[in-house]
Every structure is written in C-alpha cells, then in structure tokens.
Design a protein around this nucleic acid. Structure first.
Lengths: 150, 150
DNA sequence: TATTATTGTGGGTAGATGTGGGGAGAAATC
DNA sequence: GATTTCTCCCCACATCTACCCACAATAATA
C-alpha cells in the first residue's frame, strides 16, 4: 500500500546539485522500495516528475511486453525511457540531480516540490507561477466529465 | 528480477574503437549474466542494439520456433543472426566495437547510449535527432490502442 | 523554556568510474 | 617461420560519486 504524496515545500539545490527530498516523502518509500530510489523524468508540463522506483517499474514491466516489431512501440519506449533516470538518495536523503534534467525544468537553485498522489513534481518556482497563470481555468465541462467517473 | 534500463548518456569512442558501457548498465548484468556480455546487432531503426546476452538468448529461443520451410523465415533468421555479435566488456568495462556495425549506425566518435528497458540503443547523436524529428508523432489512435493493454 | 531527537545543509575525502595508451600474447597474413 | 595486425590485459590518472562527519535548523518532548 502506497500512501499518497501531498503538499508543497520549497527547497534549494546545494553547490553540488544535490536536492534534499523531504523526509515525509522518503518515508513512504521504505517499505516497498528498499533503497530510497526514485525514477526522475521529464514531465509533460515544464517540470520534473519523480516516481517511486516501484511505481515506475510496474509501468516499465508492461511496456516491456510491447512488440519491438512495431515502429511506434519502439519510438514510444525510446522517448519515454531516455528521459528517465534511476536515482538513489544518499545517506542524508539527497539526490544528485543531473544537469540535463535541471536544464529542462529551468531549475537553478530554488525548487518547489509538490506531492501529487503517486509522484512528486519538481518545479522552478517562477515557472510554476507562470504556468499556473497561463493555464486555462478548469471549466464546468471538465467537472461534468469528471462526474462521469466519480 | 531484471531492473529496466533507463536514461541517456553521451559517450565517445576512443582511438581503438572502444566504447565504455556506463557502470549502471553493466551492474544490471552481474546477477544473471556472469560475464558482462552483450549481443550487439543492427537495429530496425538506424542505430545499434545491445542486448544483455540473456535477453538475446531468450529471443533466439523464440526464433527457433519459426518454421524452416518458409523462405521468409529463413531469410529473417539469417539476417538476424549474421548481424549479431556477442561481445564481452574488457576489465575496464569497455566494448571493442566492430567497424562494420559502427558504419551501419554512422557512428564516428560520439555515441548516445539510451537505456530502453531490456536493451540499449546506440545512436550517432545527429542521426538520433533527425530520426526523432522525422518521426510521425504518436497519435491518439496509438494511445487508444495502448489503453486496451493497460 | 529547556532538552532531546529529527531533519536539512555544507564540505572533506576515499573509492568508483571514465579515458588514454603501452605492450604481451593471440591470430591472421605473407 | 617471420611479419603484421588485432585483442585484451595492465597501469596511470583525471573526474565524479557517495560516504562520512560536523553542525545548523527545525520539530517533538518533557
């Protein structure tokens, strides 16, 4: 049973590009994920996504069954996988962030960590603000559709 | 349990055409694949594919079931086999790349290594870029089909 | 408020990793 | 058999990673 991530907090990269993962999020990994491991990937929005490795592995396991004889499958796996990196927290609960990913999300020093159910979002605070402002507001139609599910 | 390959990193062939396989990928072989052995083959896309020897053997096992009486099967098996080479990493974790394969993927010096679940893709970076750009984007239909699986 | 425990931050350093190149022995060629 | 080419071991060394310890900041407890 995975407890859902929730909340938002602000953190800073140190001189060595290490990001400290809040203890409350780390704690949720211990049971299933022996080694405090996340898989970090580029988000569909201009942010980074951190999945508990277990979550990511479950999805990867399914993708593995896609036939490699289909071009589209290969393309999808390639795109999805090349942006994902498996990263382990050090003994102090920090993750060494690759520059390539930081650049994608435009993260310099400040990072907003958002718990979003079964993954974490990592935002450069200014980007997050802009993104939220430029967002088309959720309209009634959206919630009508939601109502079909709930 | 095989951990999935993921991520992308840039490497260079040295003067002796040796390619250093990132330690994180090598490590995933140790358990099952005693000797850091990969089978490298020409990809369906213009890149090289490196399978852990174990994975390749499993695939070969499936091919064995194809009927020899069909001309196309024989052709396929022949092509597949002759393009595959079993290669072991040296003590420093490098693989000596045959020129024939390098030429196929147009690799000169720079190599992008992409972890794609149960195999590695080796790309000449410029080829990769072109290939990704010329790719027909994955459309809604594709994801509709995927949704049937997941 | 004082005390203790937990968490976050900084930085030194040993060991792991990546890269280059010499050279012994194997394999191929003459 | 002699010569050349190739393969792969070894060593060297620069760089990177992740450990460790120290201590500040915060939260939890008495």
């Amino acid at each position: 049973m995975i407890t859902s991530f929730a909340g938002e907090s602000k953190h800073f990269l140190d001189e060595k590009s290490r990001l400290s993962i809040p203890a409350k999020y780390r704690r949720w990994l211990t049971e299933e994920d022996a080694e405090y491991t996340f898989v970090i990937t580029k988000g569909a929005d201009p942010c980074l996504i951190a999945y508990p490795a277990v979550e990511w592995d479950m999805f990867a396991e399914k993708l593995r069954n896609l036939s490699q004889f289909k071009k589209k499958n290969r393309a999808f796996i390639r795109t999805w996988s090349r942006n994902s990196i498996r990263l382990k927290c050090d003994k102090q609960g920090r993750i060494l962030m690759p520059q390539r990913l930081l650049d994608f999300a435009n993260i310099k020093k400040e990072v907003a960590i958002i718990g979003a159910l079964n993954y974490l979002e990592l935002w450069e605070p200014e980007m997050l603000k802009e993104h939220q402002e430029s967002q088309i507001p959720l309209d009634d139609d959206y919630f009508e559709d939601l109502a079909d599910i709930f």
